[in-house]
Computed example of a mutant assay.
Amino acid sequence: MNELVTGDAVVLGLRPAKLPSRALAVVIDLVVVWAAYIVVSIVLTIATDSLDTAAVAALAVASFLLIPVGVPIAVETLSHGRSLGKLACGLRVVRDDGGPIRFRHALVRGAMGVVELLMSFGVIACVASLVSARGRRVGDLFAGTLVVRERVPTDRGRPVPPPPPWLVGRFSELDLSSVPDDLWLAIRQYLTRMGQLDAGVGWSMSQRLAADLAARTGVPLPPGVPPAAYLAAVVNERQARDSRRAFGSAAAAAVGPVGGPAPAVRPPQVRPPVVGQPDAVPQDTPQDVAAPPASRFAPPA
């Protein structure tokens, strides 16, 4: 599978990064990190000239763990998978489902990178990337991540259809921690392509995916909710939670369904009475009434 899904529930034409671009990004990162490590080592050598051998050795080990190992982990965590070299080459580290990585992913990648990149001079990483169909090194396999190219044409993006308005926020209390990444990926891929599927096939797929998702969350599918609409609403809820974690509650509140802008609400419109006729009943109901679920969420005829 070449296409990936971002954490914003959007299928993009992202492609796994090839070995040459990844190698160039690693070289840039290593040059910067080792230059900083050499400068810090020289400063520590001058500053600890009066200390004993044991103290100097302890500081040397601490500086090695802090700079060549700790700094890349911190940078990948804070930048959501974009180090200096990856930023220069247009690459990013993402989860298997295309979402942003977290500290645990960066930690596993960094720990395995000590063996793959530093101790073996990159030989293990190169062999693993050549063998893997998606160009992943051993650290990516253990962390559940991969490196993708970000610089792609924008017209290849296909957004996930938003859920019906009456379902937005309905699953805010749902526990999504037990849903695996491969199930998220399958759901998002289905939602972006359900318009291209046969009605019967699409309906059966939505039922199967909704049953799997309900089994993982421990909450059955609400009665009267089409499976496809249920899937879209839960994906929207997960995206909103990712936005709150990444940007804070204020930024997430300004985001509508599946990353789109919040829908504008028109004020109630009152129709004035017509002269010479009985007083008309004021039309105090907003005109933008939530439409029923789209036909794509309805069962096949």
Rank of each mutant, 00 (worst) to 15 (best):
I73K: 13
L87I: 00
P20F: 13
V61A: 14
T217I: 02
A62W: 00
L141D: 08
C126Y: 05
T53G: 06
A128S: 15
V27H: 08
L209Q: 04
G70I: 10
V115M: 11
G276N: 04
L87D: 14
Q189R: 05
N236H: 11
F121T: 00
V289D: 10
R137I: 13
M1E: 04
P257D: 05
D29E: 13
L176A: 06
L183T: 09
T45A: 14
V147A: 13
V61W: 10
S129T: 11
G256A: 07
P165A: 15
A62M: 07
F121Y: 10
M1F: 04
A264W: 14
A111K: 07
V27T: 07
F171P: 12
T145V: 12
V108A: 15
V289L: 12
P20S: 09
G276L: 04
V281G: 01
T154R: 13
Q207F: 05
D97W: 03
P72G: 08
V108T: 09
V56Q: 13
A254M: 09
A133P: 12
A55C: 08
A290I: 11
I42E: 05
L30G: 05
C89D: 00
Q196G: 03
L191Y: 04
R271Y: 10
P222M: 07
P286I: 08
V131N: 08
V234G: 10
D96I: 07
E237R: 00
P163K: 04
L12N: 10
G139T: 06
P163H: 06
P161L: 03
A36L: 15
V234L: 08
D181W: 14
G90H: 09
T6M: 04
D284Q: 06
A57V: 10
L118G: 07
A298K: 11
V11I: 13
L221T: 04
A199I: 01
S132K: 00
M119R: 03
L24V: 12
R241F: 08
T53F: 06
D279F: 10
G99K: 03
T217A: 09
L59Y: 15
F64K: 00
L87W: 06
